[in-house]
Amino acid sequence: MANKIRVATTSLAGCFGCHMSFLDLDERLLALAEVAEFDRSPITDIEHCGPCDIGLIEGGVCNSENVHVLREFRKNCKILVAVGACAINGGLPALRNPISLEDCLLEAYRDGIGVENAQIPSDPELPLLLDKVHPIHEVVKIDYFLPGCPPSADVFWAFLTALLEGRDPTLPYELVHYD
């Protein structure tokens, strides 16, 4: 038990598809639970990432809290992995980058179809957004990148088993694709 490998995961500005793909390990989740235990992750209730062996990050950075969480992961994880297109290059959410944030907000809350009581939500309870969506390697150092949108369950499996067995986790050619 004591020398189980500790894995933490989080979703920043992502769609959660990478986490779904991780759950697509299906029955292999049982085998994984034999050798690994989970720290902070949407599949556990742990709120702060403690010292971990591996951190898996889904999604890019779109607000200041993403930055905060990412730094927390970097501080605590020996190996930090960018999982999926959004973490690696911003992905779909980064399509807003060529457009000003104000225009995005006005479209949603003033100029949209069927909008009533038009106003940009401004309550102090709402956090501030960054003007651009950033890949996570612009914020902290990243050790590995798993391409795909999302990477398939087989990619997670190949990567994690290699690390667990102490091998260099290179992916076989057929597992490297980007959609």
Partner: peptide
């Protein structure tokens, strides 16, 4: 407290991209 801006940034894209773009709003 979540905001994506999809309705704006989808403007200017060809319509046939929509089914593969919009599904990336939600992986569940």
């Amino acid at each position: 407290v979540e905001f994506r801006g999809f309705e704006k940034f989808i403007q200017g894209r060809p319509y046939w991209e929509l089914p593969v773009l919009v599904q990336r709003l939600c992986g569940i």
